[in-house]
Design a protein around this nucleic acid. Sequence first.
DNA 1: CGGTTTCCTAGTATTAGGAAACCGGTGCTATACT
Length: 471
Amino acid sequence: MNKLNEILQKKFGHASFRDGQQEIIEQMIDGKDVIAILPTGMGKSLLYQLPAYLMEGTVIIVSPLLSLMQDQVEQLKIIGEKRVIAINSFLPFQERELAIRHLADFKFIFTSPEMLQNEQFNRALKNLSIAYVVADEAHCISQWGFDFRPDYLRISNWLHSLNDVNVLALTATATKDVVEDIKNTLRMNNPFEYIHSLDRAAIAYEMVEVENQQEKMNWILGRVTSTEGPGIIYTQSRKKTEVYAAMLREQGISIAYYHAKMEQSDRILIQQQFQQGQLDWICATNAFGMGIHKDNIGQIIHDHIPSSVAGYMQEVGRAARDGKQAIASLLYTSTDVEHTFYVAMQDFPEEQDIHIAYQPEYAEVEQAETTTRILAYWKERLNEQETIQLFKQIKQKKWQDIQSFYSMIQNDTCIRRQLLHYFDQTLLEKPAHCCSKCRLDVTSVLRKRKDEKNNQDRLNWKNRLNILLPS
DNA sequence: CGGTTTCCTAGTATTAGGAAACCGGTGCTATACT
């Protein structure tokens, strides 16, 4: 038995590798940069965890969310790894100081892109032997770096200051453009690319045009009260998550709402309840979903045009991880495109904001916090005209992203085929239940889903009874 | 930009109709204050 398989079995308790895992790990051990695009639930964490045990030094994992870091720290502790820590604002100040003074004691350090800019932390990192750096959910670099969280772009200089250690980028969805952004920002040198098919054959796509907002509400009411969960309803405003949830709760549905303006502790609680099956439905903004562990999600409902095909893929990709029949439904009206664009643009720096940012008395001007931070980043790198040009381009691209989703649902081509095409992938085999462009029989999809779920429930009960009453 | 809600007015019945106001996603960290 080779070394990799031995560690896989002894340390991680798996009999064999899944698609691509061994290849990727071997490349990393050989000292190559790797970019791996594979669906959630395909064993991404193993890719950065396993090679750590065959290499000298510490692994630094850059992660977008505090909750994700917490979660992954716990996962490692479960398999008996004690040399693991998340260095972020959640860690009490004195503990952080202590940890930074003893970085070499850790095998895995999780942190945020923002924290990488912390001087004290950086000084300590420069004296640390680093095995490799991992960018988890690497599409965030492209999705957030330019106009939301500039520290994602600062990773570039940070890596340079570490003499360009090896990098592993992990994500579930990335278009060619996003891959380019990732490679550039992470200064990847001729990386090994592993790209798994993004198609989930078990998801049927249903696109429904309606007349107005009221119809969306009625549709959701009808669907959720007459079919099986668990499911996620994605909407575009925080208020609406609460309104829908209240409406469905009144009908006896087990549902909670979720959005970014909630207390962090409530968010964690709701996510856990959903994962453990105590809640059937979540009604959420796009704040919900990253890092969720649940393989039996059967329905994803959108009540709007999403702001990009990539974003939509991430959201529907949370369904059918168990391979059982699922359905993704999207409700839209002809005016949704403008609305989505407006929502995407509301904190976006306009020409006037940029102009102001370049004035000497800028310090006294009040701007949205995000705008100030973003412009501070670009001000260090570009002149006024260049920044204005850049943001025109970004705005243009955001408009195109929304448009490409809208044109996808308006033409006659298969949705599944188009979704994959957007990621430069081709559809190999079309499932029986495909999409509304392929004569989708929604009733039989829902029936199949119900049957599969009932079978599963029966099985679960049987297993439980067997444990309680061994024969 | 578009929808929904609130407000105003006319003019007397309590309400119709239209204008105006309001509202709309994503997260980190540092710091001050409870």
